[in-house]
């Protein structure tokens, strides 16, 4: 034993699980890659430009804010993840400055004005997306058809198309799929929606690959299964009960599959609503929050003036998180109602 042996002194526990903040962030990034690869394949090389711009803008903002606050936070991977999610939430034809502004807003305003990672109370990527959506709605609605769809009429996303054209529609239709077919919208089957052969944001169209990534995160216990399951579950239930009424079909006739695989539901429920910082900390809280997300998504998508409801639903529920946390504190051990000693 050498005399100059240097021993670390620390409070117990003396061992630590392999988990770390950076590992969590990078694993989420990796699990998002398949859906992004599909987006690039479907919408062409311009999507790479959009993704690169939003990631670079996010990382650069993080770096500059780090200089201001004298913290070095690039290695934790959270800025890359935010930038990537913002890119995923952009249509491929979006003007580049919009993508950049979304990232800058997300990092500088939403994340750092409250102190950086861990202290923001709203999901930065979603707040960035919503900010540019309301500021540059036109630019944010430049949809393009995936290149594998034969008749490349650049139009709207299935949900947008549905919402716009239902208002002036006077005929009869049995449901959204029938309606789209009747209007010559190039979607043949649920498979097109599930695989992602539809117009939409770069990272949101492939429900299949998002599900694979999400399940991967649930298995690794990085995502709590409660949030996606109760979010998607409550939304599906409400859609099934009330979703058919717009087509004059009465209760319990909504087209669940159509609504699950369109818009940003999969991306939102699996990767955005599950953001640790802006979701509740107890299981009970997570369930309440997820059901709230499901309910609001349903409300906005079916009765609001926007085709989509996911982003707004999640950031609205983000606002309630402190309240939910307060109401769902864990029950401490030894506080059970007194039981009889003899049972």
């Amino acid at each position: 034993m050498s005399e100059e042996m240097k021993l670390k002194i620390s409070s117990s526990p003396q061992i630590h699980s392999p988990a770390s903040t950076a590992k969590i962030m990078w694993i989420v990034v990796v699990s998002l890659i398949p859906a992004g690869v599909w987006g690039v394949y479907a919408f062409g090389p311009r999507s790479i430009l959009v993704l690169a711009a939003s990631i670079l803008a996010a990382v650069a903002s993080e770096y500059l804010m780090g200089l201001v606050f004298k913290k070095s936070t690039l290695a934790d991977g959270s800025a890359v993840l935010t930038g990537l999610l913002i890119g995923y939430n952009m249509p491929a034809e979006v003007p580049i400055y919009i993508a950049v502004l979304a990232s800058v807003f997300a990092i500088v305003i939403v994340k750092w004005t409250f102190g950086g990672l861990g202290t923001n109370w709203m999901n930065p990527a979603l707040a960035g997306r919503v900010f540019v959506f309301f500021s540059w709605t036109g630019g944010m609605s430049r949809w393009s058809m995936p290149h594998m769809v034969p008749d490349t009429v650049s139009g709207a996303s299935p949900l947008g198309f549905l919402k716009t054209n239902m208002m002036t529609f006077s005929g009869t239709s049995s449901g959204p799929m029938d309606f789209l077919a009747g209007q010559n919208y190039p979607v043949d089957s649920y498979m097109d929606l599930f695989i992602g052969r539809i117009p939409g944001c770069i990272g949101e169209v492939s429900a299949l690959l998002l599900l694979i990534g999400g399940i991967f995160l649930i298995i690794l216990k990085i995502v709590n299964w409660e949030i996606p399951v109760f979010y998607i579950g409550s939304f599906a239930l409400l859609t099934w009960i009330f979703g058919g009424m717009g087509f004059g079909n009465g209760f319990f006739s909504g087209d669940i599959l159509f609504h699950l695989f369109t818009g940003g539901l999969m991306l939102g429920a699996l990767f955005m609503a599950t953001d640790m910082v802006t979701s509740p900390i107890t299981r009970k809280g997570m369930i309440i929050y997820a059901i709230g997300c499901g309910f609001l998504t349903f409300l906005i998508r079916f009765y609001g003036s926007f085709p989509e409801g996911v982003s707004l639903a999640i950031i609205l529920m983000n606002i309630f998180v402190p309240l939910i946390n307060r109401a769902t504190q864990p029950v401490k051990f030894g506080n059970l109602p007194k039981e009889k000693k003899n049972d």
């Binding site: 670390k8 003396q14 061992i15 630590h16 699980s17 392999p18 988990a19 770390s20 903040t21 950076a22 969590i24 936070t73 934790d76 102190g115 950086g116 990672l117 861990g118 202290t119 709590n224 640790m276 910082v277 802006t278 979701s279 509740p280 900390i281 107890t282 997570m286």
Partner: peptide, 15 residues
């Protein structure tokens, strides 16, 4: 064995 990671801000992950 001791696992010496660097400290970051709390993520409110609830673990």
């Amino acid at each position: 064995e001791s696992g010496s990671g660097s400290r970051t801000a709390c993520l409110s992950c609830g673990r």
